[in-house]
Amino acid sequence: MTVADLFAILPQTLLEGLLLGFVYAMVALGYTMVYGVLGLINFAHSEVFMIGAVIGLEVFRFWGNPESPVIANPFLLLLVALIFAAVGSGIMAVLVERFAYRPLRKRGSKNILVPMITAIGVSFLLQDLTRIYAALRHNEFNMQYRTYDALNQTFELPFQTIIQVKGIIIIVVSILMLIGLTYLVNRTKLGKAIRAVSQDMQTASLMGINPDVIISRTFLIGGSLGGVAGVLFGLLYTNVTPYSGVLPGLKAFTSAVLGGIGNIPGAMVGGLILGQLETLSGTYLPFLTNGNFGTEYKDVFAFLTLVLLLLFRPQGIFGQNVSEKV
């Protein structure tokens, strides 16, 4: 492969990175918002994302059955799937907060390991509950999204780039969600309350804000974004398993850290950067190393970026350096 060839595939690679980046950005928002209000790495968020993907898949199965479809139009069906996934994942996130994290908060333990270990436990529990569900309904835990010609139709863009209809949908939906979230956080009363709680929970509660309600809403918003991202992820990769939330979740968290954890625009930018890093390394590593180090190392690349970044700029790209209070 010549240098010219390498450049020729660059636009397509960048486009794929963009799609992946938007999915990461939406999941990263869930991590960053929860971290903002609770200071907790919500490991279970990757499962909320995966459950969103499963809900979307079920909507496609129920109402998009090819023999007797309730909703024949794939675009409408996708819209319904997105709404259901947003609601379902949001409720799931709220339930997790209510039954796993709130009891710990009420007990007032200062040990930071306790909520984090609970989060890991919840994540494992949700994985296997989904697996049981999938085993009972589909006889196997490997689930496939239905494909539609209308969604897979391709368009040619300049520079030999090809985009599918679903790619366009992913970009449009993500941008709408990100704009909506920015509006919600910056311009509404709820957004103000969320920002107040993440700045100082105790003072916020003195100002007439009920932190429990706000935390619960934060989980709802983050969970809904994760659910939508799950459906988009399912569209993009078509294959969903109970464990397919783990790796994207980890990378979304990495994106959140990249942008500066707790920082909402940071999470969006971090997701887009990580999406590009991953597809670029996945595409070019095999060429640059003569096939000795293949695409399999793209995850290594993502994690090493995280480690390096944390070493040199632990507060992330947009984060502010907060000195520890004694």
Binding site: I120, Q127, R131
Partner: peptide, 8 residues
């Protein structure tokens, strides 16, 4: 995983 999650 279910068992370990519940234990945690």
């Amino acid at each position: 995983r279910l068992v370990f999650g519940l234990i945690l």
